[in-house]
Amino acid sequence: MLEHFDKAFENRVRLQIMAVLMANERYDFNALKELLGVTDGNLASHLKALEKVAYIEVNKAFVGRKTNTSYCASEKGKKAFAKHLETLENLIKQQKQ
């Protein structure tokens, strides 16, 4: 059963990032950092990993002089997340029996 788990979601923070991007059209870096309570470096590395498998898309915009980086879930990422949750739910059902 465990081999059906998505490798990209093995890490808890990555699964959390994906969950937030499922519930919101887009979310910016600082808001994610505050919501999840993680450090800059930690969040950046997990975002990179999700970007690498093309589960999320990155938008850079300028607000005044500062860059404002926001993220949104790609179609691929949305499907992967839905499948991952389904796997979890099935696992729970199986264990109940």
């Binding site: 959390q16 969950a19 937030v20 519930a23 919101n24 919501l35 949750l85 739910e89 729970i92 264990q95």
Partner: peptide
């Protein structure tokens, strides 16, 4: 992961989705 862990994991994900959007 056992039954309780899985269920609380799912619940915390759902809760996070709600909290991020509202």
């Amino acid at each position: 992961m056992n039954h309780e862990q899985l269920q609380s994991e799912l619940l915390s994900i759902r809760h996070l989705m709600e909290r991020s959007a509202k």
